[in-house]
Simulated scan of single mutants.
Amino acid sequence: MQVYPGYIERDLDGTHLWIREDYHREELLHRIGPEALLKDADAVKIQTGRLTAVFRLRWEEKELFVKFFLYKHWRHVVKAPFLKTKGRLAWENAGMLLQEGFKTPPVILVGEKRTFGFVQKSFFVTEAVEAVSLRSFLKESFKDSLLKLSISRVNFFYRLGRVIGSLHAKGIYHGDLNLGNLWITASSGNGLFDLYFLDNEGARSFRSLPNSRRLHDLRDLNDIRFEAISLKDRLWFLRAYLNENPDLRPHKKRFVRELLEASIRRHKRK
């Protein structure tokens, strides 16, 4: 199955692959297995959660990221035969985001291996983008970062709110919308910036976004423990967000209260 044009579908050692045509090289395909990456002196393993393993490697002067999805939770194992693999979902959702005008790192390869329907292997490979995580951007010399973009603090959070507001206005739920999964270009110097969405395997598209999904996304992004974001910053973000979702304006006080309550509950669980 081709999610969008330009990919070749094939099997390699029992693993089903979809490869972007310009990356269809046997040497690359044999480098991206987990065993091969662990032995590869040029591959660097990046610390992530317990359900994923991520490697960074160089290929023909390009930097690539390989993400393996680990099916460790019993619920994921039991449901796997009836669902698409997480690698496939990440790929298809990346295509959905791109079609709606949002940015995400280019996917160059997707692979999966099943035995009697159960997932033995699921992974995908993306090109690196010249960007930093929003968490790092805000935390490390935020004033210097804003100077590089030639943008004021108010305009930065307002534009951020417009992007996330537009995402939800189009009925898209991300599912893991935190400061580490949003990456931002930091070198345009003209007051503009691009926002990249990562970890898109949990994204879904709705005709009308349910309020519970909206709050789930926003409570993760509204990390009340993150002191680098002031109350004024959050208010500018919300103002822009509501401008993109005018149907919420008549109930904005209730909406803000529900978001604050959801954020506090999230903080207590962590």
Rank of each mutant, 00 (worst) to 15 (best):
P5A: 13
Y7E: 05
D13R: 10
H16V: 03
E27R: 05
L28W: 06
L29R: 11
I32T: 02
G33F: 14
K39L: 11
Q47I: 15
L51Q: 07
V54A: 11
V54Q: 01
K62N: 07
V66Y: 07
V66L: 11
Y71S: 05
Y71T: 06
Y71G: 10
K72D: 12
H73P: 02
R75E: 12
R75N: 11
V78H: 05
A80T: 14
L83I: 02
K86V: 01
W91N: 01
E92A: 13
E92G: 03
A94N: 07
A94I: 00
F102K: 02
V107L: 08
L109I: 13
G111I: 07
E112K: 05
R114C: 03
S122L: 04
F123K: 06
F124S: 03
E127G: 02
A128F: 00
V129I: 14
E130F: 12
A131N: 08
V132N: 02
L134F: 14
L138Q: 01
E140R: 14
E140T: 09
F142S: 08
D144E: 15
D144F: 04
L149P: 01
S150F: 02
I151N: 01
R153I: 05
R159A: 15
L160E: 05
L167I: 02
H168K: 03
K170L: 09
Y173D: 00
H174W: 11
G180Q: 06
G180L: 03
W183V: 04
W183E: 08
A186T: 13
G189V: 10
N190R: 12
N190F: 05
L192S: 10
D194G: 07
L195E: 06
F197N: 06
R207G: 10
R207T: 15
P210R: 05
R213Y: 08
L215H: 00
D217M: 13
R219Y: 10
F226M: 08
E227L: 12
A228C: 10
F237L: 10
L238K: 10
R239E: 14
N243I: 08
P250T: 04
R254P: 00
V256K: 09
I264Y: 11
H267Q: 13
R269H: 13
K270G: 15
